[in-house]
Computed example of a mutant assay.
Amino acid sequence: MIAYIRGILTSIQDESILIDVNGIGYEIVCPNPFVFQESMNKEIKVTTYHHVREDAQILYGFKDEEEKYLFTKLISVSGIGPKGALAVLGSVDINGFVAAIEREDDKFLTSFPGIGKKTARQIILDLKGKLTHQFSITTDSDNQKENSVPIKEIGEAIEALKALGYTEKELKHIQPELQKLSAKDTDEIIRKALSLLMK
């Protein structure tokens, strides 16, 4: 099992990064490759999960051990494969996601691509009570509600920007910045996104 890769970040693509390790290039599939942009052409260490199938061996990369841990737990749930887990991790606040599982928030969980009601219930059944030792979650109900809002609003903003003609690559590029916003209003997120896209 390959637990991490250390080398020079030479390329960032829509779904993966390329790291040169002593002349060997490792392609690593990531939830959002653009979180590594500040490390372009520098040496970095990427936490990895080595996924082996009959027809392929794929390296999945994460910004930290917590993200990797949640990935491994998600793919253990019936109905969620690596692609589905990556889609969740690419657009979620991890602590907010764990809090949603603990409060059995089906509506929040089904806001992610590929997760229907049946899969959301399976996530709750399989993971409730098994993640809180690894992640700190907010117990205050108002704060939990706040945690569940941004994902929906960011999703709406992303769809609106796609309708304006912006590409998936451009939007992935700015998503890490959007997730840092305190704004909860879709229009405000769109305005901030447009200012980032025009830079």
Rank of each mutant, 00 (worst) to 15 (best):
K118C: 02
K145G: 13
Q122T: 10
Q134Y: 14
D126V: 01
T138R: 05
V88W: 09
T139K: 15
R6S: 10
D187I: 01
N22F: 10
Q57C: 06
S91I: 04
I123D: 11
I137G: 03
I58K: 12
S148R: 12
E156A: 13
L178H: 02
N41L: 13
F97Q: 09
F135H: 04
Y26P: 14
V29N: 14
T72Y: 00
K128R: 08
F135W: 09
G79K: 00
G61K: 15
E38S: 13
Y60H: 10
A163G: 00
Y49E: 07
D93C: 07
E177C: 06
P31G: 03
G129I: 11
A99L: 14
K169Q: 13
P82H: 04
N22A: 13
I58D: 06
E54P: 02
L161D: 08
N22L: 06
A3I: 07
Q179I: 06
Y26G: 10
S111F: 08
G96Y: 11
S148P: 05
E54R: 05
T10Q: 14
A120M: 11
T139M: 14
E67R: 02
I58G: 05
S136C: 03
I151D: 00
L18Q: 11
S39F: 15
L70S: 06
Q175D: 08
S91T: 08
G61V: 14
K73L: 00
L196T: 09
K152G: 01
I2G: 08
K63M: 14
E146P: 02
